[in-house]
Simulated scan of single mutants.
Amino acid sequence: MTIILVHGLWSAPAHWRGVIEALKALGVTDVVTVDLPLESLKGDVDVVREAIRKAGGDVVLAGQGFAGMVITEAGAEEAVKGLVYVCALAPDAGESARTVFPDLPSEIASDFEVVDRKLRIKEDAFKADYCHDLSDEAVAWLRETGRNPSASIMGEAVTHAAWKDKPSFYIVAGGDKCIAKEKQDRMADRIKASRIACVDGASHAMHVGHPGEVGLFVAGVARSCGV
């Protein structure tokens, strides 16, 4: 069983390093990351499908933030035995990142800007909106190494909701401002998550700020799915 860690918007594979270390400390060593281009949902899904193919066996997909869109689509692959949503979007078929919550507008929409067709969080709002619980040094590292997505990616819809067919699990970031706790709670309920946890006060960069808690949750999921 391989765990495939999938990063979200304004993130990168390296941002999972703390979670990987936590998993190794728990005896889970078959872990890989993917590098999403964040140019289109289809392109990101194709990257994850290729990682599933290369794994050559059963996998668990763990996606943070927007990557919930990606694992919801790619999770339809037969080798996928479980889905872990890390403060992540969990759309139904036909939903995009913009339409998952038509009744609950984004609390930070005014802090977005589009520069060269890339969606960014404004410099002076990045820490408060995305990673308020990290040190200034860590925030600078995230800003420097993270990837700004294509603005159009937010409007692309999934065609298949794998959580309807696969065991799914949800870990909530209790202080998230990108995807508010209310939204995460609602998604965890909708997908009938087999296991739910919450890290109180955690920001959207929970995988960076609270890698031990995230790693422990993912390890538990992997074991329940057959590791």
Rank of each mutant, 00 (worst) to 15 (best):
M1A: 10
M1C: 01
I4E: 08
H7A: 01
A14D: 14
H15S: 12
W16E: 01
W16P: 00
R17L: 11
V28H: 11
V45W: 08
V45G: 10
E50N: 11
G57P: 11
D58K: 13
V59S: 03
A62I: 07
T72P: 06
E73P: 09
E77D: 15
E78V: 09
K81L: 09
G82T: 05
Y85R: 09
C87H: 06
G94Y: 08
E95A: 05
A97P: 03
R98Q: 13
V100D: 05
L104R: 15
A109E: 15
S110P: 02
V114K: 09
R117V: 04
K122D: 13
A125P: 02
K127L: 10
H132R: 12
L134I: 09
S135E: 13
E137Q: 14
A140Q: 14
W141C: 06
T145P: 02
P149V: 04
S150R: 10
S150C: 06
A151N: 12
I153H: 01
I153Q: 04
A157L: 05
H160C: 09
A161T: 12
A161F: 10
A162I: 04
K164H: 14
D165C: 02
V172D: 00
A173G: 14
G174N: 07
G175K: 02
D176N: 04
K181F: 00
Q184R: 08
M187H: 05
M187Y: 04
D200N: 13
A202C: 11
V214Y: 02
L216A: 15
V218F: 03
